[in-house]
């Protein structure tokens, strides 16, 4: 799949923002006053920045409000509703904290909605049977783990963040390892795609068009996978391993900030691979993956 910059920045930034809102929501002794205000401004900047970036992916963004209408069937529509609900609940919670009057149940609701939004984002990809690498329970688990880890880092929870970073490394490596086998496991081949499999072994001889087209640039984007192995090593180092070491050093404000930057860059690389390595079955028709 095409690793579109708008979708990579959207899922990374909003995941981080909603992760932060989750931890602010479940905190039994949350910050109050201007410290709370700063935390919530950061969280809102990340989530709203991410959502604005997602609108860049639309070819007709002026009609974006229509995306709220089909929540009964569409995960994209559910994501839109959950994002608005999470931001409203978090906004109220943040206002209460800033004014020094915490309402804890409101925070729990905001936390639940924040996680629900990240889950809905992940379900947009998970639901696609056409992309076997994504069509797996591990996709929402990975998205939620990334949001929780990033949120813990952002809110300065050193012990929780260290544990989550380690768990994330294991999860991510397994997702790559298992993901590599999912296309073969799905059983879809050029033989089933053309119905010619019963006659022998089909092979793509020549394509229907000599130039590029939407299908190839959007769903058979093989260029992005060129350095996948190296990028996996870079991602796991930046996203998990380097931050774990940095968090154990003194001066948490300095090294914590470096750990956060490293983590976010690593997540961006991981998200690039999430899209670039995902093979859509339509590539079979072109003799590619």
């Amino acid at each position: 799949m095409n690793p579109a910059k708008s979708l990579i920045s959207f899922t990374t930034l909003s995941g981080l923002g909603f992760g932060l809102l989750f931890w602010l929501g479940v905190d039994p002794s949350p910050p109050t006053g201007w410290i709370a205000a700063v935390f919530f401004v950061i969280a809102f900047a990340l989530t709203l920045g991410g959502l604005a970036s997602s609108a860049l992916h639309l070819r007709r963004p002026e009609r974006a409000l229509r995306a709220f209408t089909q929540w009964r069937s569409s995960w994209l529509s559910r994501e839109a509703w959950l994002a608005v609900a999470a931001l409203m609940a978090s906004g109220a919670h943040g206002l209460a904290l800033t004014l020094g009057a915490p309402i804890l149940p409101l925070g729990w609701l905001a936390a639940l909605l924040a996680l629900g939004t990240v889950g809905a984002t992940a379900m947009i990809y998970t639901q696609l049977r056409t992309v076997p690498r994504w069509h797996h329970w591990s996709t929402p688990v990975l998205f939620l783990a990334l949001a929780l880890t990033g949120g813990a880092l952002l809110s300065g929870r050193i012990v929780i963040a260290s544990v989550l970073l380690a768990a994330l490394a294991v999860l991510q490596v397994w997702v790559w390892h298992d993901g590599d086998k999912r296309f073969a496991r799905s059983g879809t081949t050029l033989g089933t795609a053309t119905g010619l499999g019963s006659q022998g072994t089909p092979r793509a001889l020549f394509p229907p068009h000599t130039g590029d087209n939407y299908l190839l640039s959007e769903m058979v984007h093989v260029v992005g996978r060129r350095h996948a192995r190296k990028l996996r090593v870079i991602a796991i180092l930046l996203m998990s391993l380097i931050p774990i070491v940095l968090l154990q050093l003194p001066m948490p404000h300095v090294f914590g900030l470096i750990a956060l930057v490293s983590h976010v860059v690593g997540v961006l690389v991981s998200r690039w691979l999430f899209f670039a390595e995902a093979e859509h079955v339509v590539g079979l028709y072109y003799g590619r993956r």
């Binding site: 799949m1 639309l58 007709r60 974006a64 696609l128 299908l215 959007e218």
Partner: peptide, 26 residues
């Protein structure tokens, strides 16, 4: 008239039957 050009339907189609119009963005 209601299409926002998000492209998700083209992702969901196994057959590559849907293509984005390059000028109309639908």
């Amino acid at each position: 008239d209601a299409c926002i050009g998000c492209g998700l339907c083209a992702w969901a189609c196994p057959y590559g039957a849907r293509e984005m119009d390059p000028s109309a963005g639908v």
